[in-house]
Each structure stands twice: as C-alpha cells, then as structure tokens.
Design a protein around this nucleic acid. Sequence first.
DNA 1: CATTTAAGTGCTCAATTGTTCACTACAAAT
DNA 2: ATTTGTAGTGAACAATTGAGCACTTAAATG
Lengths: 215, 215
Amino acid sequence: MKNELTDRQREILTFIEQFRNENGYPPTLREIGRKFEIASTFGVKRHLEALVKKGFINIESNASRGITSLKNEFGLISDKLFQTESNFTKIPIIGRVAAGTPILAIENIEVSLVIDSSFLKKTGDYFALKVRGDSMIEAGIFDGDFVIVSSRKEALNGEVIVAMVGDEVTVKTYERSANQISLVPQNKNYSPILIDGKSEFSILGKVTGVIRLLN
Amino acid sequence: MKNELTDRQREILTFIEQFRNENGYPPTLREIGRKFEIASTFGVKRHLEALVKKGFINIESNASRGITSLKNEFGLISDKLFQTESNFTKIPIIGRVAAGTPILAIENIEVSLVIDSSFLKKTGDYFALKVRGDSMIEAGIFDGDFVIVSSRKEALNGEVIVAMVGDEVTVKTYERSANQISLVPQNKNYSPILIDGKSEFSILGKVTGVIRLLN
DNA sequence: CATTTAAGTGCTCAATTGTTCACTACAAAT
DNA sequence: ATTTGTAGTGAACAATTGAGCACTTAAATG
C-alpha cells in the first residue's frame, strides 16, 4: 500500500478539515456519509481507517467525533507556516486587569496574539494588555482596546506608558518634572496620578500599538 | 445576570479550550464532569448554558461534542484548533481612505498585513485601509490608523462603515432614515454627508478592527 | 426571613454515534 | 487465476452522549 491518497480519500480528508474549521468539531461518520452519499457508516469508516493507516489522521476509539491530528497531502500543516515564514511575533496577553490581583504573574499568560513583525520596532520584549476604563480616550485608547507594549523601565516625557502603581497596572501619559512624576490621563474627567516617594511605582513599558476589535 | 463569568465557569471554559487544543475536538458533558468531579451531566450542562447565555460559547443541540465558537475572557475567538493552517490571515491593504474631506480613491494594493485569525470572524473577505483625516476621532479612529474591514454591501444603523461616494472612499458611521442615508463623521467639526438619489454610493464594508502603530 | 443564583446529585430516557458482520462489485497487481 | 485494495449496501447492536426532571445545599441578595 502506497501512502498516497486516492481521490475519494482526499475528498473526505478535505471535507473533514473544512467541517472542523466551520464547526469547531470534527464530523461524525454519518455526517461524512451524508455529504458523500455513502449510505453505510461502514463505508465511511473504512475510508477513515485508510486515512489512519496512511498517517493523515488519528481516531480515538469509541469517541464521537474522535478524529484528531489532521495532516494534509503535503504533510503536517501545523509546522508549515513556521517553517516558511518567520516574520511573526508572538505576544503574550497578560492576565486580567482586576484591581488588587497580581497581574504580571507569568503563569497568568493564557492567550497569545500573533502579529506581523513589521508592526514592531526592533526585537525586544513585548506584551499586550486589555485596557479597562476610559481614562485615555482622548489619546484614542478606549475601554476594551488591546495595547501592545514594549517592555522597558524608563520613559520620556509625553510617551504613553504602562506602569505599575501599588499593585495596579495603569496606562497613562508619562510626565516627569524636576522632582515629580505624573501619570497623566487623556480625559478631562480624570486627574493625574502623582507619584511621591512612598508609592510603589515602576514602569512596565511603552505603548507601541493599539488594537481594537469591533463587532 | 452579569455577563461576567464565575470562577467555576471560567475554569470550565478554560478546560474546554485546553481540551480542544489537545484533542482536536471539544469535550462531552461527562468528560467535563469527570475533570471537575461533577457527577451529574445536568450540573455540567447548566454551566455550559450559562456560558452560552453570557456569549462565550455556542452549542449545537443534540450534537455530541457540539461546543462551538469559543471566546475567552478577552473576547477573542480561540482559534488554536485551526492553528494547523490558518492561524494567520493575510489582508490586503488597499490605498488610503479619506476620513476627513474625502480625498482619495482606491489606489493600488500596496502591501498585505498579516494578523492573528482570532481577530477575525471565520468567514468573509477582509481588507485593510489606512485612514487619513480626523473625522472619526471621537470613535477612536485617528489619522494614520489602519482599519480592518469586512466586505459587505449593506449595513445597520450606527455601524462604522467604509463607503464609496462618487469615486472617493470614506469611513463614517452609517445612519439610514426613511428615505435618506447619512454618513456621519464622529467629530463635531464635520457635517454628515447626505446621500441623495443622484450620488453614486455603495457600501464597501464594515469596520471590524482598528490598528494603530505608535513610535 | 424570603428570594434568588450558583452548584450539584441521581436518575431516566431518547438520540446520536461508533463498531461489526455478511455480502456485492470492480480494477490492478501477482 | 487469485489476491489485494478500493468502494459500497444493509442491518443489528452496544456505547456514548445530550436532554430533562425532582430534589438538595450553600451563599448572596434584598
């Protein structure tokens, strides 16, 4: 047996892939059969077994919709993108911004976001944060926006930064005078946060991008 | 009922996501129950119903493993299932758009932009435009921003759309009354564009995302 | 204190789904 | 001529799975 697919098998493999992309779960034997007008589940099953034997899928026994590990005719799809194109950068989205909870715990990283590297300046550490509140709307940063942040510990006047004040993370404009650091909101309804010697304060990074998703 | 998740619901949502990423298909009620030591499928089912009500998942009735359309706490569609192929989507950037006084028509396709597919819905054609002008600043769309546009020919009142008026492309809020279509800027200094029967007018798409790059 | 909401048990039932068997048919290779 | 691989029907069966009900517990709400 050659490890090449017959036309029929290729059709079915393609259908499984499409189905999963559309529905979020693989098809059942009967759903495949309906599509290809195969009346017997056994007919379908043997196609799947052929696909397993040839290494294109795995099937979890006795599990409904138990098709896993899709490959296509060219081999593993999962590796394909990373081999050919490497100009993407994966950015972790740092956990929930709830007051009082530690946010920068690295274990909190649940989701990543991949963006075109051309959006970023140099190589460096980036992370993303979902913004809460409207204190920066005049700078075009709205509640629910994602900000892309370049990690750094210092900032220049006028830059939009992400800072840690006490145990809260905040996005503000950085203003430093002779002996006073101000975190200035871009919204008339809010007042600057003044940093005195006592406050726990640190700069986490500079905002280098904003992403907003609408419905 | 608030649309926020309880701890239990978040745990379960996270588990579903992980399960799907590991296995390629969503878990059954009992598989979820086994994980969390919930003996009754009914207990699990009501968690899922809560997640549906709050808009984090959809469930296909009577379908095994019928959980679809995962969102996570950030509102992103969890697309790791499709990591195999299209974790990224290539979007053509088309010319520029007048967001102030309409200036530019569609130029040539310059560049493409690659973004994480979780930013997009699964279906549909997308393109991107670079916005010129400040007529939409109150909607958080600034001069120089990129808007991601889902191609469509119709719109609902209040949606931010990209439209063609004459031979110029513009980004505005769509407002339709009995017999009048208005393209409303989000900036007090500008007036709506009124579409009469004579104008050549067509909707190019709906703005589904905004990307801003800062220095 | 009554009510609501979240969380769960134990159970039954019906629908969905995977497994398996016997049999047919055809083309290609040994 | 016989085997092998592919492709299918039809039916029966068992396991998995989702749906639903009555009832319980606990915490929060008002």
